[in-house]
Design a binder for these strands. Structure first.
Length: 833
RNA sequence: GCGAAAGUGGCGGAACUGGCAGACGCGCCGGACUUAGGAUCCGGUGGGGCAACCCAUGAGGGUUCGAAUCCCUCCUUUCGCACCA
């Protein structure tokens, strides 16, 4: 007796989940053999509830992991928790729960949810960032970086989010707003710990070239973020009223040294030191002060955003262009930023859009020195800046050179004369990791009045986060309130000392966690190098695009540091990166405030894990956004239901049938067609998973196969058993990546040996892959006129003869002569008349 | 503004290196079985004539025997960056 799929999926899915766990099916060995596959999904923050974005992410990863396992790879597929961070602390403040219990409760809940989805994780390797056995290694890495001068302390103006009451790294400020709470970010001057990621700027940029398994989009975003620009610094001496050197100078940064003869003024940032040296008296003075007030007011109103209009004023200072001796006025204006380059520029209105706009507004001279062709006729007056490279004119002895040549030659001359210096500039800034919050890794340093900043010795790690700390959400670092934590003795001199009370940015935690998975139980070291190297780099890393310039730059940086510490031999942690799209409902991302959340538990309860997973894979290709559609979920459920009804009522009978021999059925067109479909489906799905990472088309192929079996079965005949059995067993095997529970159940019912999870992926029998008869499309002048069934091996002349005889074709050939024929064997014949 | 990606039925999406456009699913229409059906099964489903043909992959042009696919121009959408010198 059989039951409805609707009544049995829950029990069935739980049964297989229990069995996988009991048999430790997905536990990976300590080190893999030659064929390994590290399949990783970005670790979640334990918010307490899984959302559909997680389900999609993990369904994609699980499909790949299960497929690779069946293909014979030793697969590492772990899961863990990015469990430090602000929400736990906020929950503690709001509800009076300790962040630790809040976090652990959430983890427990989410683990249950993940298990119910039947994801093939090796839970033995589970990690959680907030546990001392994990974060002690954060501290250990920090100390290594301190030794290498990769971590340093500096007083700086930093981004400050008032709402989160903490510092933000540059990467965490998006258009002037906090990446987490979206409130406007201000600045504060604070002593902070920084990681010298800029030391790796060049390598981080150059190695992007080697990341061929990454989406172009992410590489581009990183390239922009690193912002490499090659140029020169040039010193412009400040001259006094008589034209003599004042002894002062301003240094400008330019990437277009070739245009320097066209400089007609200089511009410094409003907060540039030179502004303070502007003449103290004279009519210009009041204008300057008014401008500085305007700039300050604008900055206070909308910090960190670009002003709407260019605004500036002549400082009264004069500078000499060292390349041609020309005396230029020095302006200060709101479009020049102190944070970039030297905070000062030479303005070349003829060849820079911003300079052009500014010069036009203030009627400053525009002087053309680059022309688009080597040999221009008359030079037209500029109506817009010509910003491309070209050839130099009006540039003294450099006239006639190309822009590129000129940059090289002029830099060399300027360096020889001592007023220019070639530099490579990066937009990337050092990573500020200090956070004035409780729920994070304590930074392992001690301040001693006598010895200064002292590193906590390795033997004293971990520096434990004290449990009882008042959390109010206001004031400085919460750890300052814990006397027992703060007071310590200096490890160097033994005098009373104070501990650092800031904690680490949680992005530190997630920058290396994938190494820990490789050797999660290690108590002596963050990981054993040999073991980690046997699994790393990650073969496929799956997550959202949101981390393109944060996590994914930090973790590349970290791996380069680990390499330089001698812990690993490679410099890039991720071979292939898949950025999956978002899950939308009604065209926008699901969110509580919009009230358009679809609860994964609800879906699993109503349709089961298989259906829920199947839908997330089927409804859209992985990298595109997916619109949640309940009717589509029903469709996936119906598909599984159909598979169920097709095979389970007679599973016992089929189980007793023999498998068809390799050539069986070839004499019977109906049976041959089914076997062909079965084997073609194997081939198709294998290619899609193996080479293209397409997950929606394999599901479609499985549906087609089901339809074919249904059609075959409609006119069932005695002796069909072996053929149905083959189809059912192949179906069971191919379903494993997409609907693993149904896969196992079907396999078991059809008398399959062992479990599908423990079996090899099926091989398509080449005999059934090629069709004996193929349909050839006959075109006349590129338009389809007929279709012919011919033997696969038919030659051009044979097909041509058949085509001429075809009534449809003949009608279009009447009264015309064939000028040319194009024949694609097995595909098409095009007659050009 | 700069840069990137993408535009295919009513909808989600197929179409490997240029070779049958619309696989598969949803929705819709018709039918069967039914007391009933939002279950299941069968048939149909890009548009126009409804027959043989014509028109269709954002718009326009080009290359080609042949273009959703390659090239050019434009439009739209999404994303990223946004005075980066």
């Amino acid at each position: 007796m059989t039951t409805d799929y609707r009544d049995s999926f829950d029990e069935l899915e739980r049964k297989w989940q229990d069995r996988w766990e009991r048999e430790r099916t997905f536990v990976a060995p300590r080190s893999p053999g030659s064929r390994r596959f590290y399949c990783l999904e970005m670790l979640p923050y334990p918010s307490g509830r899984l959302h559909m974005g997680h389900v999609r992410n993990y369904s994609i990863g699980d499909a790949v992991a299960r497929f690779r396992r069946m293909r014979g790879d030793t697969v590492l597929h772990p899961m863990g928790w990015d469990s430090f961070g602000l929400p736990a602390e906020n929950a503690a403040i709001k509800h009076g729960i300790h962040p630790e219990s809040w976090t652990e409760d959430n983890i427990a809940q989410m683990r249950v949810q993940l298990r119910r989805l039947g994801l093939s994780y090796d839970w033995d390797r589970e990690i959680a960032a907030h546990r001392p056995e994990y974060y002690r290694w954060n501290q250990w890495f920090f100390l290594r970086m301190l030794e290498k001068d990769l971590a340093y302390r500096s007083r700086r103006r930093v981004n400050w989010c008032e709402s989160c009451r903490t510092v933000l790294a540059n990467e965490q400020v998006e258009a002037g707003r906090c990446w987490r709470c979206e409130s406007v970010v201000g600045t504060r001057e604070l002593e902070q710990w920084f990681l010298r990621i800029t030391r790796y700027a060049e390598e981080l940029n150059a190695d992007l070239e080697t990341l061929t398994g990454w989406p172009e989009k992410v590489r581009l975003m990183q390239r922009n973020w690193i912002g490499k620009s090659e140029g020169a610094r040039v010193r412009f001496p400040i001259v006094d009223g008589a034209g003599g050197d004042s002894g002062e100078s301003i240094e400008i940064f330019t990437t277009r040294l070739d245009t320097i003869h066209g400089a007609t003024f200089c511009v410094v940032a409003p907060d540039h030191p030179a502004v303070r040296h502007a003449p103290a008296a004279g009519p210009a003075r009041s204008g300057l002060e008014a401008f500085l007030r305007r700039a300050a007011a604008r900055e206070a109103a909308r910090p960190g955003t670009a002003p709407e209009d260019k605004d500036g004023v002549d400082t009264g200072l004069r500078a000499r262009n060292p390349y041609n001796g020309e005396i230029l006025p020095v302006w200060t204006a709101n479009f020049v930023l102190m944070e970039y380059g030297t905070g000062a520029i030479m303005a070349v209105p003829a060849h820079d859009d911003r300079d052009f706009e500014f010069a036009t507004k203030y009627r400053l001279p525009i002087c053309q020195v680059i022309v688009p062709t080597r040999d221009p006729g008359a030079v037209e007056p500029a109506v817009a800046a010509f910003v491309e490279d070209g050839w130099l004119i009006a540039s003294g002895r450099y006239a006639g050179l190309s822009s590129a040549e000129a940059r090289t030659v002029m830099l060399r001359d300027g360096e020889a004369a001592g007023f220019a210096r070639g530099i490579v500039h990066y937009r990337l800034l050092d990573w500020g990791i200090s956070r004035q919050r409780y729920w994070g890794t304590p930074i392992p340093v001690i301040f001693c009045d006598a010895c200064g900043v002292v590193a906590v010795p390795d033997r004293d790690l971990p520096v434990l986060l004290p449990r009882e700390v008042p959390l109010t959400g206001s004031g400085g670092s919460p750890l300052e309130q814990s006397e027992a934590f703060v007071r310590c003795v200096c490890p160097r001199c033994g005098a009373p000392a104070r501990r650092e009370t800031d904690t680490m940015d949680t992005f530190f935690d997630s920058s290396w966690y994938f190494y820990r998975y490789a050797d999660a139980a290690n108590r002596q070291a963050p990981f054993d190098s040999t073991v980690a190297e046997s699994w790393m780099p990650i073969d496929l890393y799956i997550g959202g695009i949101t981390h393109a310039t944060m996590h994914l730059i930090y973790c590349r940086f970290f791996t380069k540091v680990l390499r330089d510490l001698g812990l690993v031999k490679f410099g890039e942690p991720v071979r292939n990166l898949l950025c999956q799209g978002m899950v939308l409902k009604g065209g926008t991302a699901m969110s509580k405030s919009k009230g358009n959340i679809v609860d994964p538990d609800d879906m699993v309860r109503r349709y089961g894990a298989d259906t829920t997973r199947l839908f997330t894979l089927f409804a859209a290709p992985p990298e595109k956004d997916l619109e949640w559609n309940e009717a589509g979920v029903e469709g996936c459920f119906r598909f599984l239901d159909r598979v169920w009804r097709l095979f389970t009522p007679r599973a016992a009978t089929l189980a007793a049938e023999p498998a068809p021999a390799p050539g069986d059925g070839s004499g019977d067109p109906r049976r041959a067609a089914l076997r062909r479909k079965v084997h073609q489906t194997i081939a198709r799905i294998t290619v899609d998973l193996d080479r293209r990472l397409h997950l929606n088309t394999p599901v479609a192929a499985l549906m087609e196969l089901t339809n074919a079996v249904q059609d075959f079965d409609r006119e069932g005949r005695p002796g069909d058993g072996p053929f149905l059995k083959e189809a059912g067993q192949v179906m069971a095997l191919l379903l494993q990546p997409f609907a693993p529970h149904m896969s196992e159940e079907l396999w078991a019912l059809l008398g399959g040996e062992g479990t599908v999870s423990g079996r090899r992926w099926p091989e398509a029998d080449p005999v059934w892959l090629h069709e004996e008869d193929v349909e050839i499309v006959v075109q006349v002048n590129g338009r389809v006129r007929s279709r012919l069934r011919v033997p696969a091996a038919a030659t051009e002349s044979e097909v041509l003869a058949l085509a001429r005889a075809d009534a449809h074709v003949a009608g279009h050939l009447e009264g015309k002569s064939i000028r040319r024929t194009v024949f694609v064997p097995g595909r098409l014949l095009n007659l050009v008349v």
